[in-house]
Protein backbone atom coordinates (compact mmCIF):
# COMPACT_ATOMS: atom_id res chain seq x y z
CA UNK A 1 0.00 0.00 0.00
CA UNK A 2 1.08 3.53 -0.65
CA UNK A 3 2.18 5.86 2.08
CA UNK A 4 -0.83 8.12 1.64
CA UNK A 5 -3.38 5.32 1.91
CA UNK A 6 -4.08 4.75 5.59
CA UNK A 7 -7.37 3.03 4.73
CA UNK A 8 -5.96 -0.13 3.10
CA UNK A 9 -8.00 -0.20 -0.09
CA UNK A 10 -8.21 -3.25 -2.32
CA UNK A 11 -8.75 -1.32 -5.54
CA UNK A 12 -6.09 0.87 -7.15
CA UNK A 13 -6.63 4.62 -6.74
CA UNK A 14 -8.45 6.65 -9.39
CA UNK A 15 -6.08 9.58 -8.84
CA UNK A 16 -2.65 9.53 -7.25
CA UNK A 17 -0.60 12.65 -6.64
CA UNK A 18 2.95 12.27 -5.34
CA UNK A 19 5.19 15.08 -4.08
CA UNK A 20 3.39 17.59 -6.30
CA UNK A 21 4.96 21.02 -6.43
CA UNK A 22 3.41 23.96 -8.24
CA UNK A 23 4.99 27.35 -8.84
CA UNK A 24 2.96 30.45 -9.72
CA UNK A 25 4.53 33.81 -10.51
CA UNK A 26 7.91 32.78 -9.11
CA UNK A 27 6.49 31.52 -5.80
CA UNK A 28 6.07 27.89 -4.88
CA UNK A 29 2.44 27.41 -3.84
CA UNK A 30 2.46 23.63 -3.24
CA UNK A 31 5.50 22.11 -1.52
CA UNK A 32 5.24 18.41 -2.34
CA UNK A 33 1.64 17.30 -1.81
CA UNK A 34 0.45 13.66 -1.80
CA UNK A 35 -3.15 12.67 -2.47
CA UNK A 36 -5.04 9.45 -3.22
CA UNK A 37 -8.65 9.26 -4.33
CA UNK A 38 -10.31 5.84 -4.69
CA UNK A 39 -13.34 4.75 -6.72
CA UNK A 40 -16.59 4.97 -4.75
CA UNK A 41 -15.12 7.44 -2.26
CA UNK A 42 -15.31 11.16 -1.63
CA UNK A 43 -12.21 13.04 -0.47
CA UNK A 44 -12.44 16.58 0.87
CA UNK A 45 -9.47 18.91 0.39
CA UNK A 46 -9.72 21.39 3.23
CA UNK A 47 -7.77 24.28 4.68
CA UNK A 48 -7.85 28.03 5.17
CA UNK A 49 -7.72 30.70 2.50
CA UNK A 50 -4.43 30.61 0.60
CA UNK A 51 -3.58 27.09 1.75
CA UNK A 52 -3.32 25.84 -1.87
CA UNK A 53 -6.60 23.90 -2.15
CA UNK A 54 -7.65 25.32 -5.51
CA UNK A 55 -4.10 25.23 -6.84
CA UNK A 56 -3.99 21.51 -6.07
CA UNK A 57 -7.20 20.70 -7.99
CA UNK A 58 -6.15 22.93 -10.90
CA UNK A 59 -2.95 20.93 -11.10
CA UNK A 60 -4.91 17.66 -10.89
CA UNK A 61 -7.04 18.61 -13.93
CA UNK A 62 -4.13 20.01 -15.93
CA UNK A 63 -5.13 23.67 -15.80
CA UNK A 64 -1.82 24.45 -14.05
CA UNK A 65 1.58 22.92 -14.85
CA UNK A 66 3.27 20.84 -12.16
CA UNK A 67 6.90 21.87 -11.52
CA UNK A 68 7.83 18.59 -9.78
CA UNK A 69 6.16 15.36 -8.68
CA UNK A 70 3.68 13.16 -10.48
CA UNK A 71 -0.07 12.88 -11.03
CA UNK A 72 -1.55 9.59 -12.22
CA UNK A 73 -5.09 8.85 -13.37
CA UNK A 74 -6.00 5.15 -13.06
CA UNK A 75 -2.31 4.28 -13.07
CA UNK A 76 -1.38 6.33 -16.14
CA UNK A 77 0.43 9.68 -16.05
CA UNK A 78 -2.11 12.52 -16.30
CA UNK A 79 -2.30 13.77 -19.86
CA UNK A 80 -4.80 15.04 -22.40
CA UNK A 81 -5.63 11.36 -23.05
CA UNK A 82 -6.71 10.71 -19.44
CA UNK A 83 -8.85 13.86 -19.40
CA UNK A 84 -11.90 11.99 -20.70
CA UNK A 85 -12.23 10.20 -17.34
CA UNK A 86 -12.38 13.44 -15.33
CA UNK A 87 -15.31 15.82 -14.81
CA UNK A 88 -14.25 19.16 -13.36
CA UNK A 89 -16.41 21.84 -11.76
CA UNK A 90 -14.33 25.01 -11.34
CA UNK A 91 -15.22 27.81 -8.97
CA UNK A 92 -18.16 29.67 -10.44
CA UNK A 93 -16.20 32.92 -10.73
CA UNK A 94 -13.78 31.41 -13.27
CA UNK A 95 -16.47 30.89 -15.92
CA UNK A 96 -18.17 33.33 -18.22
CA UNK A 97 -17.28 35.77 -20.95
CA UNK A 98 -18.47 38.89 -22.70
CA UNK A 99 -21.12 37.11 -24.80
CA UNK A 100 -24.17 35.53 -23.21
CA UNK A 101 -24.55 31.75 -23.49
CA UNK A 102 -27.47 29.49 -22.62
CA UNK A 103 -27.29 26.80 -19.96
CA UNK A 104 -27.59 24.14 -22.67
CA UNK A 105 -24.66 25.59 -24.64
CA UNK A 106 -22.51 25.56 -21.50
CA UNK A 107 -23.45 21.95 -20.65
CA UNK A 108 -22.88 20.81 -24.26
CA UNK A 109 -19.28 22.00 -24.09
CA UNK A 110 -18.69 19.22 -21.55
CA UNK A 111 -18.94 16.72 -24.44
CA UNK A 112 -15.78 18.08 -26.08
CA UNK A 113 -12.28 16.90 -25.32
CA UNK A 114 -9.14 15.33 -26.68
CA UNK A 115 -9.72 14.48 -30.33
CA UNK A 116 -13.32 15.70 -30.00
CA UNK A 117 -13.35 19.26 -31.34
CA UNK A 118 -16.88 18.96 -32.75
CA UNK A 119 -20.05 18.19 -30.81
CA UNK A 120 -21.47 14.68 -31.19
CA UNK A 121 -24.84 14.39 -32.96
CA UNK A 122 -26.75 13.64 -29.77
CA UNK A 123 -25.16 16.57 -27.89
CA UNK A 124 -28.46 18.41 -27.38
CA UNK A 125 -30.27 15.37 -25.96
CA UNK A 126 -27.38 14.47 -23.65
CA UNK A 127 -27.11 18.05 -22.40
CA UNK A 128 -30.85 18.07 -21.68
CA UNK A 129 -30.55 14.75 -19.78
CA UNK A 130 -27.74 16.16 -17.65
CA UNK A 131 -29.69 19.35 -16.90
CA UNK A 132 -32.76 17.29 -16.08
CA UNK A 133 -30.73 15.12 -13.70
CA UNK A 134 -29.82 18.25 -11.72
CA UNK A 135 -33.43 19.49 -11.85
CA UNK A 136 -32.71 22.50 -14.06
CA UNK A 137 -33.97 21.34 -17.47
CA UNK A 138 -36.44 24.26 -17.46
CA UNK A 139 -33.47 26.67 -17.48
CA UNK A 140 -31.90 25.15 -20.64
CA UNK A 141 -32.45 28.18 -22.88
CA UNK A 142 -31.85 30.81 -20.18
CA UNK A 143 -28.72 32.95 -20.24
CA UNK A 144 -26.45 31.44 -17.57
CA UNK A 145 -25.33 34.85 -16.32
CA UNK A 146 -28.94 35.61 -15.34
CA UNK A 147 -29.27 32.49 -13.14
CA UNK A 148 -28.89 32.42 -9.36
CA UNK A 149 -25.69 31.13 -7.78
CA UNK A 150 -27.25 27.76 -7.01
CA UNK A 151 -28.70 27.38 -10.50
CA UNK A 152 -25.36 28.27 -12.09
CA UNK A 153 -23.62 25.71 -9.92
CA UNK A 154 -26.11 23.03 -10.99
CA UNK A 155 -25.46 23.92 -14.64
CA UNK A 156 -21.68 23.59 -14.11
CA UNK A 157 -22.12 20.22 -12.40
CA UNK A 158 -24.35 19.09 -15.29
CA UNK A 159 -21.51 20.12 -17.65
CA UNK A 160 -19.11 17.87 -15.72
CA UNK A 161 -21.59 14.96 -15.42
CA UNK A 162 -22.55 15.00 -19.11
CA UNK A 163 -19.07 13.52 -19.72
CA UNK A 164 -20.03 10.51 -17.57
CA UNK A 165 -16.72 10.80 -15.70
CA UNK A 166 -15.09 8.26 -13.38
CA UNK A 167 -13.60 11.06 -11.31
CA UNK A 168 -15.48 14.20 -10.32
CA UNK A 169 -13.44 17.16 -9.06
CA UNK A 170 -15.31 20.13 -7.58
CA UNK A 171 -13.88 23.42 -6.31
CA UNK A 172 -16.01 24.94 -3.52
CA UNK A 173 -19.28 23.56 -4.94
CA UNK A 174 -21.43 24.94 -2.11
CA UNK A 175 -20.18 28.54 -2.13
CA UNK A 176 -23.10 30.92 -2.59
CA UNK A 177 -25.56 28.09 -3.23
CA UNK A 178 -29.15 28.22 -1.94
CA UNK A 179 -30.56 25.39 0.21
CA UNK A 180 -32.69 23.66 -2.50
CA UNK A 181 -29.68 23.63 -4.83
CA UNK A 182 -27.46 22.31 -2.01
CA UNK A 183 -29.85 19.39 -1.58
CA UNK A 184 -29.98 18.69 -5.33
CA UNK A 185 -26.18 18.83 -5.57
CA UNK A 186 -25.68 16.64 -2.52
CA UNK A 187 -28.11 14.02 -3.91
CA UNK A 188 -26.45 14.03 -7.35
CA UNK A 189 -22.96 13.65 -5.84
CA UNK A 190 -24.02 10.87 -3.48
CA UNK A 191 -25.64 8.95 -6.33
CA UNK A 192 -22.48 9.38 -8.39
CA UNK A 193 -20.23 8.19 -5.56
CA UNK A 194 -22.42 5.16 -4.88
CA UNK A 195 -22.24 4.29 -8.59
CA UNK A 196 -18.46 3.95 -8.16
CA UNK A 197 -17.14 7.38 -9.08
CA UNK A 198 -14.31 8.96 -7.16
CA UNK A 199 -15.14 12.44 -5.90
CA UNK A 200 -12.65 15.13 -4.88
CA UNK A 201 -14.10 18.25 -3.28
CA UNK A 202 -12.41 21.46 -2.27
CA UNK A 203 -14.34 22.61 0.78
CA UNK A 204 -13.99 25.47 3.21
CA UNK A 205 -16.16 23.53 5.63
CA UNK A 206 -18.00 20.22 5.38
CA UNK A 207 -21.47 21.71 5.87
CA UNK A 208 -24.27 19.80 4.11
CA UNK A 209 -21.74 17.51 2.38
CA UNK A 210 -20.52 15.97 5.66
CA UNK A 211 -22.39 12.65 5.08
CA UNK A 212 -20.81 12.32 1.62
CA UNK A 213 -17.16 12.72 2.62
CA UNK A 214 -15.09 9.66 3.65
CA UNK A 215 -11.85 11.36 4.52
CA UNK A 216 -10.12 14.67 4.29
CA UNK A 217 -6.75 16.00 3.21
CA UNK A 218 -5.98 19.21 5.07
CA UNK A 219 -3.57 21.72 3.57
CA UNK A 220 -1.80 24.55 5.32
CA UNK A 221 0.48 26.89 3.37
CA UNK A 222 0.97 24.39 0.58
CA UNK A 223 1.74 21.37 2.78
CA UNK A 224 -0.46 18.46 3.87
CA UNK A 225 -0.99 18.69 7.64
CA UNK A 226 -3.61 15.98 8.03
CA UNK A 227 -4.94 12.95 6.16
CA UNK A 228 -7.79 10.94 7.63
CA UNK A 229 -11.09 11.58 9.39
CA UNK A 230 -12.64 14.85 8.28
CA UNK A 231 -11.95 17.47 10.95
CA UNK A 232 -15.02 18.66 12.80
CA UNK A 233 -15.66 22.33 13.32
CA UNK A 234 -15.13 23.33 16.93
CA UNK A 235 -16.08 26.24 19.14
CA UNK A 236 -18.15 29.12 17.83
CA UNK A 237 -17.57 27.98 14.25
CA UNK A 238 -19.69 24.90 14.85
CA UNK A 239 -22.68 26.92 16.01
CA UNK A 240 -25.58 27.00 13.56
CA UNK A 241 -25.88 30.33 11.81
CA UNK A 242 -22.31 31.32 12.63
CA UNK A 243 -21.00 33.89 10.16
CA UNK A 244 -17.49 32.73 9.17
CA UNK A 245 -16.89 35.74 6.96
CA UNK A 246 -17.39 38.44 9.55
CA UNK A 247 -16.67 36.66 12.81
CA UNK A 248 -12.99 37.51 13.04
CA UNK A 249 -13.45 40.95 14.55
CA UNK A 250 -14.54 39.64 17.95
CA UNK A 251 -13.14 36.11 18.07
CA UNK A 252 -9.48 35.49 18.66
CA UNK A 253 -8.22 32.30 16.99
CA UNK A 254 -5.06 30.73 15.64
CA UNK A 255 -3.75 32.40 12.51
CA UNK A 256 -5.29 31.32 9.18
CA UNK A 257 -7.33 28.48 10.63
CA UNK A 258 -11.08 28.11 10.91
CA UNK A 259 -10.94 24.65 12.41
CA UNK A 260 -9.05 22.91 15.16
CA UNK A 261 -7.11 20.55 12.86
CA UNK A 262 -5.91 17.25 14.11
CA UNK A 263 -2.23 17.24 13.33
CA UNK A 264 -0.94 14.11 11.66
CA UNK A 265 1.46 12.21 13.96
Amino acid sequence: MTAADPFHHDTPPAITARAVRVRLGGHEILHGVDLDAFPGEAVAIMGGNGSGKSTLVRALVGALPVSAGSIEVFGRPRSRATASRIGYVPQRASAGGGVTATAREVVRSGLLGTGQLLLPRDAKARAMDALDHLGVAHLATRDVASLSGGEQQRVLIARALVRDPDVLILDEPMAGVDVPSQEALSAALTERRDAGASIILVLHELGPLAPLVHHAVVLDQGCVTHIGEPPRALGVHALPGHDHEHAHADVAEPEGSTFAWEVRP
Binding site: V61, A63, T82, I86, A95, G96, G97, V106, S109, L112
Partner: peptide
Protein backbone atom coordinates in the same frame (compact mmCIF):
# COMPACT_ATOMS: atom_id res chain seq x y z
CA UNK B 1 -18.21 24.57 -30.13
CA UNK B 2 -14.51 24.19 -29.24
CA UNK B 3 -13.71 27.88 -29.68
CA UNK B 4 -16.70 28.72 -27.47
CA UNK B 5 -15.52 26.26 -24.80
CA UNK B 6 -12.04 27.79 -24.73
CA UNK B 7 -13.15 31.43 -24.75
CA UNK B 8 -15.97 30.81 -22.24
CA UNK B 9 -14.08 28.84 -19.57
CA UNK B 10 -10.41 28.19 -20.20
CA UNK B 11 -9.88 26.23 -16.99
CA UNK B 12 -12.66 23.78 -17.85
CA UNK B 13 -11.37 23.51 -21.46
CA UNK B 14 -7.98 22.46 -20.04
CA UNK B 15 -9.64 19.84 -17.83
CA UNK B 16 -11.45 18.11 -20.71
CA UNK B 17 -8.24 17.89 -22.74
CA UNK B 18 -9.00 20.49 -25.43
CA UNK B 19 -5.83 21.93 -27.02
Amino acid sequence: ASLFAVTHDQEFAHSVGLP
